[in-house]
């Protein structure tokens, strides 16, 4: 296990280098940079730079050096967690990400958790009732959900239940009401939860439908195995045969696909945070893109991709932990 871990972690190095190199070159070689370097502003005035900003940028990307020396130096700074300063407010990118990550992580985390909690029972029920009305209804619903774009769902939900012409049950924007600072602890928490319901729903249902379809197939495969017959031949009640013998096997692939959902959830968070005006990392990314805040753009991209890579690592390790057949010695 230890040897496997070490080997698996060593394999991360080339991928990490690839991720950072790609991001670095993408941002450094962007035509905008070259134009800025020549001192010419873009078509809008806001993009003209002060001499000080230009100095900072030349230092950050090593624009006066060849790409690879510049990359090596940038990596050196990256290992010291120095991603440069934002062009917008001159604060360190690491600090800016740091104060935003909590919200995005809790959004994506609860979306993932709820997806799993709902999707697995749905998939299991559909698999048990294979071909019957229940199965068809679940499969079709999940299929339709899978095809609804999250932003369209978000808009329609706002229209229907959040202060549109119809119901006014939930708040439309933000993380808390304006008077949140005057609230007691529980009132504040309830207020926060109400604000999070719609964003989490919009972020959840896509992953939910994907995972439940996956769970159904995985469960069907498990139920078709010989050991299910053995379990029945032992006289085990059907509930145990399904929930213990079959589900335990089906869960192995289901659990490990969580890593594949990470990039999807982060993509979704960019849209959802923007629609619901939630000050998370997605919104920061979006604002930085609009302001052409290159250090922040690059910082977030590198940060998110490394996070995803770690997610894949975790999934691989989890696979070894939950499947006794796989032992890397």
């Amino acid at each position: 296990m230890t040897t496997y871990l070490i080997r698996r972690i060593l394999l991360l190095v080339p991928t990490l280098l690839g991720i950072t190199l790609l991001t670095f070159l993408l941002v450094r070689e962007a035509p905008g940079n070259i134009a800025l370097m020549k001192g010419a502003g873009g078509e809008n005035g806001s993009r003209a730079m002060t001499a000080e900003q230009r100095e900072a940028m030349i230092k950050l990307y090593g624009l006066d050096k060849d790409p690879f020396t510049a990359y090596a130096e940038w990596i050196g700074r990256l290992t010291r967690l120095d991603l440069g300063d934002s062009w917008v407010d001159h604060r360190s990118v690491v600090a800016k990400i740091g104060e935003r990550i909590g919200l995005t992580a809790s959004l994506a985390g609860s979306a993932l958790l709820i997806s799993y909690l709902v999707a697995i029972p749905l998939g299991v029920i559909a698999a048990i009732k294979r071909g019957q009305v229940t199965d068809r209804a679940i499969s079709f619903t999940v299929f339709v959900l899978y095809s609804i774009p999250s932003f369209a769902a978000a808009l329609l939900l706002i229209l229907l239940v959040a202060g549109g012409d119809y119901l006014n049950l939930l708040p439309m924007y933000g993380t808390n009401s304006i008077n949140a600072s005057e609230m007691g602890r529980f009132e504040w928490l309830w207020d926060r939860i109400q604000h999070m319901i719609l964003p989490v729903i919009c972020l959840t249902y896509g992953s939910l439908s994907y995972i439940s379809r996956y769970a159904r197939v995985s469960m069907l495969e498990a139920l078709a195995q010989d050991f299910i017959r053995t379990a029945r031949a032992k006289g085990l009640p059907e509930r145990l045969v399904i929930l213990h013998h079959a589900l335990r096997n089906a869960l192995i692939p289901i659990i490990t696909i969580f890593a594949l959902e990470l990039p999807v959830l982060i993509s979704g968070a960019v849209i959802i945070e923007e629609i619901f005006s939630l000050p998370g990392m997605g919104q920061l990314m979006f604002a930085s893109l609009e302001a052409r805040d290159n250090p922040t753009i690059m910082g977030i991209t590198v940060f998110v991709s490394i996070l995803t890579l770690l997610g894949y690592l975790l999934a691989d390790i989890l696979y070894v932990v939950v499947d006794p057949r796989i032992r890397y010695e």
């Binding site: 941002v27 991209t301 890579l309």
Partner: peptide, 12 residues
């Protein structure tokens, strides 16, 4: 695969 697709496209 480490880049969220929407993020990479937005940057590009």
């Amino acid at each position: 695969d480490c880049f969220p697709p929407l993020l990479l496209i937005l940057v590009a």
